[in-house]
C-alpha cells in the first residue's frame, strides 16, 4: 500500500466534506478504566464540522468555521468560543480545518501497523495540547486517529464508515441555543 503521507494527501484532497460514525476510547495513564464514547460527525471544509456524541451521554459540538458551539443538554449549557483557539486542538478541527493539520503539525511517515498506513504528526508549538498525533489510513481513507497528551492520556478515534463528498446541508453547521439554556462565551 502507499505510504501514509501519500494516502493522507489523497484523503485531504478528496475529503472536501465527509460524514460517518466515530468510536472514541480514552485511556488514562493512571489505569482508570477506559472511557468509551460514540456518535456521528459531519465536516465541510474549511472549518465547518458537527461532532455529536450519542453515548454515554449527549454532547454536541458545532463549528460554523468562525465559532465553536458546545452544547450539553444535561448541564443545559452552551459554551461558545472562537474556533481559532480550538482549531488545532480538537480532533474534529484537525480534519475539517483548512490546512490546520499542516499548520499545527510536522508530518512524518509512520510506517505500517494494524493493517493501516500511518502518519505521525508532531505538534509544531510546545503549547499544543497534544504530545503526538498518529493518523491511520487504508485505501486513501482515514480509519483511525491516536492522540497522546502531556499527561500520558491516549485518545483513539475509529472511523468505521467514513464517506467523503457528502455535500452536507449547511444548517448542520448552524447552532441555535435552545431557549432556557445558558449561553456562556469564552
Amino acid at each position: 500500500a502507499d505510504a501514509g503521507i501519500v494516502q493522507l494527501e489523497r484523503f485531504v484532497a478528496r475529503a472536501g466534506s465527509a460524514a460517518g460514525h466515530f468510536e472514541q476510547t480514552v485511556m488514562s495513564q493512571s489505569g482508570r478504566r477506559p472511557q468509551v464514547s460514540s456518535g456521528r460527525f459531519v465536516f465541510d471544509r474549511p472549518g465547518r464540522f458537527r461532532w455529536e456524541y450519542v453515548k454515554p451521554y449527549p454532547q454536541l459540538l458545532v463549528s460554523d468555521g468562525d465559532k465553536l458551539w458546545s452544547w450539553d443538554p444535561d448541564l443545559n449549557q452552551v459554551t461558545v468560543q472562537p474556533i481559532g483557539d480550538a482549531l488545532g486542538s480538537t480532533p474534529a478541527a484537525i480534519l475539517a480545518g483548512d490546512g490546520a493539520l499542516e499548520r499545527n503539525f510536522t508530518l512524518i511517515d509512520g510506517g505500517e501497523r494494524d493493517g493501516l498506513a500511518w502518519v505521525t504528526a508532531e505538534p509544531r508549538e510546545r503549547e499544543s495540547p497534544f504530545e503526538i498525533v498518529r493518523i491511520g489510513l487504508a485505501d486513501g481513507m482515514l480509519q483511525r486517529m491516536e492522540m497522546r497528551d502531556h499527561f500520558g492520556q491516549t485518545t483513539v478515534i475509529d472511523f468505521p464508515d467514513l464517506a467523503t463528498g457528502v455535500d452536507p446541508d449547511p444548517d448542520l453547521f448552524r447552532f441555535v441555543p435552545p431557549d432556557g439554556a445558558d449561553v456562556l462565551s469564552h
Binding site: 493512571s30 482508570r32 464514547s37 454532547q59 480538537t90 474534529a92 495540547p129 485518545t155
Partner: peptide
C-alpha cells in the same frame, strides 16, 4: 480520585482532552 492522603482532580475538555 481521592485516596488516603491523595487527591487528584482532572478537568477534561468536552472532547476528552485533559
Amino acid at each position: 480520585t481521592r485516596r488516603a492522603g491523595y487527591d487528584e482532580w482532572t478537568l477534561l475538555s468536552p472532547l476528552g482532552q485533559i
